[in-house]
Design a protein around this nucleic acid. Sequence first.
DNA 1: CGAACAATTGACCGAATTCAATCCGTGTGG
DNA 2: CCACACGGATTGAATTCGGTCAATTGTTCG
Lengths: 247, 247
Amino acid sequence: MQHMASPAFKNCSDCPIRHRAVCAKCDSDELALLEDIKYYRSFSAGQPVLWAGDHMDFVASVVSGVASLTQTMEDGRTQMVGLLLPSDFVGRPGRSVATYTVTATSDLMMCCFRRKPFEQMMDTTPHVAQRLLEMTLDELDAAREWMLVLGRKTAREKIASLLSIIARRDAAFSTSNPGKALTFELPLTREAMADYLGLTLETVSRQMSALKRDGVIALSGKRRISVPDMDKLLFEAGDDSDGGFLT
Amino acid sequence: MQHMASPAFKNCSDCPIRHRAVCAKCDSDELALLEDIKYYRSFSAGQPVLWAGDHMDFVASVVSGVASLTQTMEDGRTQMVGLLLPSDFVGRPGRSVATYTVTATSDLMMCCFRRKPFEQMMDTTPHVAQRLLEMTLDELDAAREWMLVLGRKTAREKIASLLSIIARRDAAFSTSNPGKALTFELPLTREAMADYLGLTLETVSRQMSALKRDGVIALSGKRRISVPDMDKLLFEAGDDSDGGFLT
DNA sequence: CGAACAATTGACCGAATTCAATCCGTGTGG
DNA sequence: CCACACGGATTGAATTCGGTCAATTGTTCG
């Protein structure tokens, strides 16, 4: 169940997303203003955070864990339209109704800011607005990248693209050992993968098996993936050889 | 061929996109600053504006006409990732390399701002940055909406969705006469429609014929579309009955 | 008129979906 | 402790939607 919660750190200056989130450009004075209007909420894996159409009186940053943004049609077809990782922003200043459903994909900690005072800060402290613009432009690029995946890639390429993205993110955190096998935890069920990729969960399962059979990936358990040769995975994703990966 | 060009109006205050573009929130002083760093460029239908990877020393607003943003894989598969209509913004402050290929889909007039001074204005005049944030958030919503279309809709629903979007935009310009047939010009070739929808041009053609046969749309010539019953079209698009259309 | 290009239509094929059976790991109650 | 239920995942067989290849029809413009 969702509850007010305390994170493992004391204040903003020790926050793990201090230098990547919407507050990244703030100086200590500005940070103090944010401290006043923030509170933490945590959710366990699988819990809904918000339903599309809900009233929201806050905006928030993901502190730890993974959340998903999804859109659903009346007949139940659903499409994931965003994967929210630590430092990503939820909500839209100036809009009090949620456009998308937000779900905690793993255990999740969010840093929430009360809407009204946050919107005032947007007007008064340019650093918040500047950082939010940068982040939104990055999100837009990511969304457009994903449109190519959804519109033009085969099922196998879609899977490889998703694994590349997650591997890339993980590589950024752990120490990169070039040439060595890269191993990471997959934070999504087969169904969530299918919803992200515009596929059925059966097709996801089949293509995962095929990639395993072909030696592109190896599985230990259901969720732990290891990639012996990152270039091979990127090739399967159909991206340019460089792909912007660690170059 | 692309050339420097004069628009049909004298200065910013007479500009047709004055109140919707990135300059919408500017006062007359700020507008004067923009006047100094702007110049016009025009392109005829079909002309490329920018190739992905090109150096750009400007950002721009679409003044009139339609342009498309596309992404292409090495093997030639291409996906349109944005349709740029009058008032839409091209380029990204702080980035001097084009991420996407931009093509003039119809005759096109752009208002270009030299990059460096524009970026300075972004820092000094909050109105420009504020408006750009709003516009980018809108673009992000549109991109996510489109992810649902690409990932989960059938070919017929995709076509109906595209026609709905164009019809909606046109309805916003012309006087809306509820209950009457809505008629508009389709600013895209079948191939461009296919690239937008993640389909082949043959499938686009077949589904257009099917929608015509079923009385959802009527064609006069190849490009002029009329929609006798907008609700029927929205139903075919698979959207909620309201769909945010004129409500 | 004929060339070039856009669009339509048909026949066939194949990748992904659908429907269905089975497997596997985990947790729960007899 | 084992049986069994449950959800997630895998695998199989049949179907279908959209893609591919190819022929044809329009349409525009030198």
